[in-house]
Design a protein around this nucleic acid. Sequence first.
DNA 1: CCATCTATCTGCATTTTGCAGATAGATTAT
DNA 2: ATAATCTATCTGCAAAATGCAGATAGATGG
Lengths: 136, 136
Amino acid sequence: MPGGWRRGWRSGHGMPRWRRIARFVQPCLLLLLHQGPSHGYNLMESLKEFGFAEDPVDSGAVYRSLREMEEEGLVASEWDTEASAGPARRVYRLTAEGDRALAWWVAGLRETDRVLHRFLQAYDRHMEEDQGEHHG
Amino acid sequence: MPGGWRRGWRSGHGMPRWRRIARFVQPCLLLLLHQGPSHGYNLMESLKEFGFAEDPVDSGAVYRSLREMEEEGLVASEWDTEASAGPARRVYRLTAEGDRALAWWVAGLRETDRVLHRFLQAYDRHMEEDQGEHHG
DNA sequence: CCATCTATCTGCATTTTGCAGATAGATTAT
DNA sequence: ATAATCTATCTGCAAAATGCAGATAGATGG
């Protein structure tokens, strides 16, 4: 890997690009759309409130994800030219297929959650033992 | 996307390749090496016990990850030719730098854990409301 | 010798996503 | 008018993780 970016554990010289949990944009968008139709720009704002405030999701990733999901039939869209201000919006809504996809994602994320807990518990447990045995 | 693979929510015709949480192999390896030196093949076995039994981590990913971490100075290795059976093993151990990297990963994964909980809670809450309002 | 287990390593393809920036409609200030 | 700004969508590129397939090779036993 040629220089130009750095790893985050090296005292604050910069952060790696891949901080966030991966493959999380799609399920988040599906959940937001389950709560009602919306368009890309607004979904980006919603994602911030969702827990990505400090490190907002890239807009390119959001729009691409939406179009890919439309190709797969998980969402459907219509142009909304009547809206208040600014250019036309492509308003997405969840399909029945998207509803199933969301349920599938949630099942996977619950498993992820369990694995993550096992990892963190193992870390904490090991660190406690470590302190107890040799602390010099 | 050309045909040849399918998405997992489509009734059991196959699973997507990216089921597992991403960027998780490195922190797992760092934690295992924090518990003591080991070699790639054995680390793969340990990963199974770690929570990847049903869907073991690819060996190529493990070996590549180890060598990349060595380039970055997070681990160091020596050949072990004295070992019991089979070919020589490259035995890795954690460095002080690797120790810092592990702590950094753990901090990030705790944040991931929080975001994941928010997502799952939002899903469950929304699904409850959904059932209460219209169930037809 | 050949199969098998142990062990490491490589090439290729796919997916995700961060960064940078293009395009363009609508609103407001000058 | 026109320039700046906000809203909104979209594209190209590169980097990174990793699944799949398979090559290489030592050791062991039939």
